[in-house]
Each structure stands twice: as C-alpha cells, then as structure tokens.
Design a protein around this nucleic acid. Structure first.
Lengths: 170, 170
DNA sequence: GTCTATAAGCAGATAGAC
DNA sequence: GTCTATCTGCTTATAGAC
C-alpha cells in the first residue's frame, strides 16, 4: 500500500494541478473523497502543498545533500546528477514545480515553489561559486524534462552528461 | 479588438489547458460560450488545436524561417535567437507545448505537439549538422521559460546568449 | 478515520430564438 | 453569428452515521 501523499503527488504529476480531480486523487489514494478532506481540511490546495513537502524531503536527500558532502566539487556534482537521475527516473518522471507553476492557481503556490528552487540553486551555487550558473543548470534539467515528455527521452541523460563535463568549466 | 484565436491562445498560456474554463475563454474573447462553440464545434480541444496552429504560424515566421535564410550559420542562429526572444517576449511568455503536454488530455495533443517540436529541431539540426544538439537547444529554451516563470527572469536572456556563443562550437 | 449521502456550483456542451 | 436559456454530469466541499 503506497503512502497517501505519494499517491497524491503521482496524480498531480500525471494530470497537473487543475487536471487532477478529487475523484482521481481519491482513486489513486484508495480513500474516499471525504476521507481526503479529513486528512487535508484545507482541501485540494493543501494536498498539493503536502505533495510539495514530500518533494522537498526527497529532493533534499537525493539531490541537495550530496552537494553538502565532503569531497572535491566534481564528485559532489556527479553525486547530485546521479540523484537527479534517480529522482526524475531517467527523465520519465515529471517535475511538480512545473505542474504547479503552470496552474491557474499559480499565485497560491508561487512562494513555496520559488523557495524550493532557491534551496537547490543556493546549494549548487555554493559548490560552483556562481549563483547564475546554478540557475542555468536548474533550467537545463527542467527543459530536459519538458522535451523528454515531448517524445525525446534521451535528452535527459545527455543533459546530465553535459552538465557533468561542463558545469565546472569556465 | 484582438483576434479570437490569439485571445484563446493567451488564455491557455495563462491558465493551462485544464485550468482554462470555457467561461475564461469566453471572457477573453468577448464571445459567449455558445458563440465559441459555433466557431469551434469540436469544443475545447479544437480551440487548443487552433491555438497550436497559430503558434505554428508565428513560430514558423519568427524562429524557423530565419534558419532557412541565406548567410553563414552563426548569422542564421542569431536570427533564430532574436526570433525566440520576440516570440517568448524575453521569457515572459509561456510555451503552449508545455501547457498542453502537461494536461490530463495530453494524449489527444501528443502527435501535433511532437510534430511542432520536430519542425523546429529539424530546421535547426540542418544548420548545426547535428540533430541531437538541436534537441538540446530546444530543451535549453524550454527550461529557461520554466525557470523564468519560477521567479528568475534573467535566465532567458542568458540562455539565448549562451546558445549564440556555444551552439556552433564543437 | 472512513464511510454514504448530499449540497451548491461550475464544467463542457447544446437548442433554438433572433 | 451571437445571444439567452438550459442540460447533464462532474467539481470541490461538507454533514453526519458508524
């Protein structure tokens, strides 16, 4: 039995925020709609924020923590890239940030989404000694996910490989 | 009075496919919901496909045509990048491909979306002599749009500049 | 804590007057 | 070709039994 928040997250990733109905969330979690409201009295928006919390936890462990580890920069970068490959399942898994920032309710999510992105780019910028290059790397990953979904799955692995060989080069 | 299809396109860009209600499309176009169905008897999906046709026209003129022009590769690339800057309004405008591929109805849109991406990467790949690099460049643009929407507007101009200086380098 | 039942409203879509 | 009015079904959300 998969965790309720994970099932909610998967549903938002698949259908988007506006496209994910309470019925779909209910089916994915195995809980009745009313039970979902028992767990998330603030409704659908709170479910999305809980999914984002879950993303933050996992992303922190898989992607950000390796950046704070010991070892030379190239090693930490490669550990981050390996974490990204796992986190996004080789480019087959969508990004919740994209799904929520593209929703009609984006204003309700903007602050936490910006904070999530910033946590990543701050940690990466520290390793690179360059904040802009960290933002650019995040953009490269996000774009690879979009284009992978548009029928070009190999772009994701290629992007990881290119970041590994070029992100520390001046 | 802006064109009806342009108003529909803007609404899908702002709210996403699932987030754009017929009421919102009606308000944006100034037409009643029934009038929208007179123009698009196949309903909301047909409105999105008409918006995509409009994107294809404009993108063809602004971005793809410069790639087929005469002149050295660097000149053609820079003309394409200038077209992208106009087309996406310096990164402030969203991409319809992202909005439609992220919808719960993505399967209905997949073919035309893949075709739109391919038209671009084919033309760019011809100039570069490398299909994969063309796909990677498209990913860079898409990612810059996502991250720009996440509160980092300068990433778009930086991405255009980087593509200009590096896309032809081996 | 999950359920059935239901509320109130909006969704996409249609009929038919003008 | 646009309108008012309407249909059906699904939406988010709630009440209250168990």
């Amino acid at each position: 039995m998969p965790d309720v928040t994970d099932a909610i997250l998967d549903t938002f990733l698949r259908d988007g925020y506006d496209g994910a109905s309470l019925s779909a969330l209910s089916a994915a979690t195995g809980l009745g709609r009313a039970s979902l409201y028992h767990r998330f009295p603030e409704g659908k928006r709170a479910m999305a924020l809980a999914a984002l919390d879950r993303v933050n936890e996992r992303f922190g462990v898989e992607v950000i923590a390796p950046l704070h580890a010991c070892g030379p920069p190239q090693e930490r970068i490669d550990a981050m890239l390996a974490g990204l490959d796992r986190f996004y399942d080789g480019g087959r898994r969508a990004c919740l940030l994209e799904r929520l920032i593209a929703s009609a309710d984006r204003d309700a999510f903007r602050r936490p989404l910006v904070a999530t992105l910033q946590a990543w780019t701050d940690a990466l910028g520290l390793v690179l000694g360059d904040a802009e290059r960290a933002v650019d790397a995040a953009a490269a990953i996000e774009g690879a996910l979009v284009v992978a979904a548009l029928g070009r799955p190999t772009v994701f692995a290629r992007t990881l490989a290119r970041l590994s060989s070029e992100i520390l080069r001046r």
